[in-house]
Nucleic acid binder design. Structure first.
Lengths: 355, 355
DNA sequence: TTGTATGCGTTATCAG
DNA sequence: CTGATAACGCATACAA
């Protein structure tokens, strides 16, 4: 009682034709008579024929599917990107296979092996925070697998990359905190090896110095797992809140870090934003549910997925190797959400709280 | 410069053996000498051989992959379920292909066709709120495709189903609102055709009558798109807040409805929960970020994915047709999060607000 | 215009 | 123990 599909053979037998004639008729070949074509097409329609994509893959040595690896689909930033990827992929007849690394280098490797063994035609990937060894990816790339990196890119591999303007985003976020009256701004960052972390840190530092504030290394904390583990954020905050050098605001450089900071600060009794400033790279839709809502750096996620996919399909479908790789930089946007409260914050000097 | 994989042929040629010998050696057949086996295995390892799953699929007429259709992967409830599905699937050597219907019957149909044409061995699906015509699914099922429904099930199709105890969840949520002192409890529900909507509505009504409150049909609002479109929630709330019969609390019967109600109520100046009660079926992790946080009905999502997948794999791998279908009911849990505020709410009578 | 034969990578069947 | 061959579904070069 297995699910049996209709094949080209069934049509050929039923119509007294050869399989090749049927195949050609279905592909609308010029060498088939209109009558035969009509006959075949109508019968195919009637019995609901669909070509077996597995056989096609085997024949054409391509699967018309692309692999996507992200750390976490539950993250709305990534799911928006996936939506962008899917929209372009589907329009071009490609399937999308999604897999999650959950910020683990091991799982990333497994997924990678799985996808390549499934013969995906190309790969769109945002590497996990934990990954330090890119040799497998490099080998894949050297062997001709089209790859596009996005968000968390790998500098060592020469291929297309799509990122947002991390420097500008961090700069804007920090400036917003400064303009809101906060005086001592810390940052909670991703693993320092990540390119995005570096750039965001640079933007943060630049904003401080441009506004005549000094960069204090003790106010810079790293979370190796990007906030996936809440305790690492807790640890970072705990250190920041030590009496000797307390900040009154934080720039959080990633989604999970922003929500992590928020949770911990609120659990400690702070009103955020208000007593304590917080702006971050967070696309979690729900930050707007907060009362007062949180300002965030919005990343053009959907568009990012689209751009990455267009580049990948271009690589896949070009006959000769692509050489002119480029790094597309999309622009972030500061979404100011706590406008009414911000004015208050500006009006009254921020009290030195953190008792 | 395409990505070329190593095949059994390459090994055969390199070792001066036939492809069948190599194939048998790799599968550890008893009829191959230990020396040959060792030779083949070592060489395969060395050149990093992996069987081509596409060729295997063609041969075995199965793809070792299962299709999953949900309305939205960004919804953390569904992404948790997907994690549960993946964990079981991967452990059994199955791949998972995820697709989103985005609450559109059209997209659901397209995904369904796509997945079946990709020869998935089985399907795990939560139908979209919009779907009213289940004939395609029914046909698929009749033709032998193993299907497991979860969350939003289709009563007409005889197969395994996995749901949570919607009745109990709704009953608990409503009771919680009653115990918190709210006097007039409305509900914002999914499309009434959905089985989950019916059951949750029944739980809501039962809780009211069990506590000596009367069911007022004008306090029951439906959102056809399950809150995907914010305006429909807005419309529902607007009607509820009409002067003549205002409620002071809402039981929201789905994730997007809960967050939708929250957003709209807060934008209208209500403190929620507090002035206005709100409990819903919401697994959005971030509801705990709210201040005060929101009590929610937690659904055992991960476990649900596991159970569904186990049932599906059992169907796929059983040689004869499965007949003893069952509907597994998992238990929900009321997560009380606004405990401190709840006491206040209990202590002081809820003022008749809604001015 | 249509049919026949071949190959994509693998395994099963049959023959040595 | 090992090798040759057919088959899975399809497209296509080559024949007719």
């Amino acid at each position: 009682m297995k699910f049996e599909a209709v094949t080209i053979k069934d049509i050929a037998k039923a119509l007294g034709l050869s399989t090749s004639t049927v195949s050609r008729a279905l592909r609308d070949s010029y060498e088939i008579s209109p009558e035969t074509k009509k006959l075949v097409l109508e019968y195919a329609e009637k019995i609901n024929y669909h070509p077996n994509p597995i056989a096609l893959s085997l024949k054409e040595r391509r699967s018309r599917s692309i692999g996507v690896i992200v750390c976490e689909i539950a993250n709305s930033y990534f799911s928006q990107i996936i939506n962008g990827i899917e929209s372009i992929a589907y329009n071009n007849g490609y399937n999308v296979i999604i897999s999650q690394s959950r910020e683990s280098a091991d799982r990333e490797m497994l997924n990678l092996q799985y996808l390549t063994s499934r013969s995906v035609d190309g790969l769109i990937i945002s590497v996990s925070t934990e990954t330090k060894d890119f040799s497998y990816l490099k080998e894949l790339h050297d062997r001709g697998m089209p790859i596009v990196f996005f968000d968390r890119i790998v500098d060592e591999i020469e291929t297309h990359k799509v990122i947002v303007d991390n420097y500008k985003g961090a700069y804007d976020a920090t400036t917003h905190l400064i303009n809101s009256g906060y005086k001592k701004i810390a940052t909670v960052s991703n693993a320092p090896a990540l390119s995005i972390a570096k750039e965001r840190l640079a933007g943060y530092k630049a904003a401080l110095t441009d506004h005549g504030m000094e960069v204090d290394e003790s106010l810079i904390k790293y979370c190796a797992h990007g906030g996936m583990i809440l305790t690492e954020v807790e640890e970072a905050i705990k250190e920041l809140l030590k009496p000797k050098n307390k900040p009154d605001a934080i720039f959080a450089s990633a989604d999970k870090l922003t929500t992590g900071c928020l949770r911990i600060l609120r659990s400690k009794g702070y009103t955020v934003p208000g007593d304590f400033g917080l702006v971050g790279f967070s696309n979690t839709d729900l930050t707007e549910l907060l009362d007062p809502p949180l300002s965030v750096i919005r990343q053009p996620a959907f568009e990012m997925g689209e751009v990455a996919t267009n580049l990948l399909l271009q690589m896949i479908e070009s006959k000769r190797p692509v050489t002119d790789f480029e790094t597309k930089v999309l622009t972030t946007e500061l979404l100011i959400r706590e406008s009414t409260r911000k004015k208050e914050a500006k009006a009254k000097p921020i009290p030195s709280l953190l008792k």
